[in-house]
Design a binder for these strands. Structure first.
Lengths: 139, 139
DNA sequence: TCCTTATTGAAAATTATTTTCAATAAGGAT
DNA sequence: ATCCTTATTGAAAATAATTTTCAATAAGGA
């Protein structure tokens, strides 16, 4: 299902700022902050307000169309999200981030932690950090 | 190695604010924001500045004595860290967070992702979310 | 095309974080 | 124990990030 349908079917409108933001995030290679998205839109001649960026990101994230990733230093950025549960691996040199899937690989760990801690586990967040193929060549 | 030694051996002083912060974090059950730490110190009659809290947290985190965890909503808090690499599981009801270890369980996943993506993986961040034993009873 | 109302965006308000700098205190040297 | 050096503190100011407010706009069903 594409993001336009997801928005409509949830009762939200396909507004200009939302379109611009989805376009930018779709093409982005690295996670972007709200301000970065705003600046990029401006540079492309698309006039949108920073407030709308904040609001749209909140909405899009809640719908699972966009997701928040964390740099190793704790700073945050937004990326486009594909359907289903994914994780990200981020290059520590160029920041380029890509998705990977693999919830199954965590099953064992989750079961063990549930037994050891008594917690029930309902969700998880995993991110890998490393060096992307391109930056490996340059080093 | 205790935190005092870690600080000294790295050339840092055991100052009052750092002691207060380590005390508070050691006793804390939930991750605390800089402001929360500051307020708690104040309430206990320990007069420290908020700026020092920010500075100390940055230092302590860089030394691995304290670590940053993320709530499911993206908000951040600090927790005491034990030695070695650990992960956290956070209760979505009461926010209580505890550590668990288990880097080994990720080996397989990491190897697979390295092959699939071409990235080399050097670090990772994992957090689980769920309900703690106590909150399970109350539900 | 009209009409309803979700959404926008500018400005103001609030909150979070960082910088500056003189005063203080940690801890090695004496 | 006291002195001395300098890392560290904390108040205030500066900056940055985020949220609120509200009148104007525009999305999309009728």
């Amino acid at each position: 299902m594409n993001w336009r349908k997801t928005l409509s079917q949830s009762g939200y409108r396909i507004s200009k700022p939302r379109q611009v933001i989805m376009e930018i995030l779709t093409q982005a290679k690295v996670p972007l902050t709200p301000l970065a998205i705003y600046n990029q839109a401006r540079n492309n001649g698309r006039k949108i307000g920073l407030v709308s960026v904040y609001r749209a990101l909140e909405l899009l994230t809640s719908l699972g169309l966009v997701c928040l990733v964390y740099a190793n230093d704790g700073s945050q950025g937004y990326m486009i999200a594909s359907e289903g549960h994914h994780h990200h691996i981020i290059c520590e040199v160029c920041e380029q981030a890509i998705e990977f899937s693999g919830v199954e690989d965590l099953e064992g760990l989750i079961l063990r932690v549930q037994q050891e801690t008594g917690y029930t586990v309902s969700d998880h967040f995993l991110q890998l950090f490393g060096v992307c193929p391109n930056c490996q060549k340059l080093l």
